[in-house]
Design a protein around this nucleic acid. Structure first.
Lengths: 209, 209
DNA sequence: GTCTATACCACGATAGAC
DNA sequence: GTCTATCGTGGTATAGAC
């Protein structure tokens, strides 16, 4: 857990390169096996040190997960910022497409930090969840605001239920973590597919409707 | 679970009422805390018996999870069957809507068995995953077939990538497990929202595109 | 910052009485 | 079918030397 200030005060222990390395490896193991199944000994083993040495960098296993989830959310936030900037001046569909692509890219291009958030948040220990919930909520609120603004400007159906729409969209994107492999498929294609499905839908019923 | 026939010789121990009760309670704990974190002692406690007594009903903790996942898939399959029957004679969009609603209903109306599949399959022990993978693949293939037949009949865009489309749709629906509460929201509304989003999309861009 | 050694506990699972 | 008692293992975490 982290102490004082307001937000994400990134630990006063200096950001040693060792710490970053441990986080990355631990995140990969949490992603593959889940939080409980990835033991401290196994993590230390993968890092190449003894389990006891990990405790020089972290006070407890839970802190490891908290740091990873926090970092994952920071990546997502940065991706959203970037997309927001890049979007200015484009038409509505393109603006949304840029955000979709940014979310997916964050899921795959910044190590396991974001993906592990998707897969382990639900069953994370109480304390960890409590620490992350506000950050997560803030990110989701940004999406809600984005969709709401599109509705208000007439770019999305006026009767859109923004909440469910956002959850289905993000849920669908996050679920890709289970099957999409960026070394096989194209991230751009995936982003375009997701955008199209959300924006235009796939129905082309010749009978009408 | 249903009995003998072809597949998974489902234990010759008769289907005692006790067994069903244990499965339901264990599924709920797996859903809330994950497989590893839900210890057999905790499960036994929730059932109201001693840990050792569980082993009269199951040989190992893994068998518990396997049985739960299998039962979950059986529920999903039954839901698909039912939707398929109900769909005959309706237009394409309605046929899809019935399947969407059936999938969501199966997720929420049959205890935790289906939902736990969504949340724990990824990190389940190797042996469990291996046992369930074929069943899961078969279910997903039914959806692929459904979508493909809609494309072939001209009801879905001809250039639809059926695989990704199915995964985004199912992913979005499955992700609802994290937030949708059927005692608060309406399942019918959720199903209609998901269907609409997939079929028509939400974009109404006045600028064109 | 990493090591060896170890404390202590909860884990899954078994034995055998009732 | 459930109990009490217990086994062996591997879990997180600490102490203290280097």
């Amino acid at each position: 857990m982290t102490p004082p200030t307001t937000d994400a005060a990134p630990d006063l222990r200096t950001e040693s390169p060792g710490r970053a390395r441990i986080l990355e490896i631990a995140a990969g193991l949490f992603l593959d096996h889940g939080y409980e199944a990835a033991s401290v000994r196994r993590i230390a083993d993968a890092v190449g040190i003894q389990a006891a040495s990990l405790y020089h960098h972290f006070d407890a296993k839970e802190d490891l997960l908290t740091a990873i989830l926090r970092q994952g959310m920071a990546v997502m936030d940065a991706a959203f910022d970037e997309a927001h900037e890049a979007a200015s001046g484009h038409d509505a569909r393109t603006r949304l497409a840029l955000h979709v692509r940014a979310h997916l890219a964050a899921l795959y291009e910044n190590g396991p930090f974001t993906a592990v958030h998707v897969t382990t948040f639900r069953t994370a220990p109480e304390e960890v969840r409590a620490a992350i919930v506000p950050v997560r909520d803030a990110y989701e609120a940004r999406w809600t605001d984005l969709l709401r603004s599109l509705v208000d400007a007439g770019h999305l159906a006026a009767d859109t239920a923004v909440g469910p729409a956002r959850l289905l969209l993000l849920g669908g994107m996050n679920a890709t973590v289970g099957w999409f492999d960026p070394s096989v498929g194209s991230l751009d294609d995936l982003a375009e597919t997701a955008t199209r499905q959300f924006w235009s839908g796939l129905g082309r019923d010749p009978e009408g409707t």
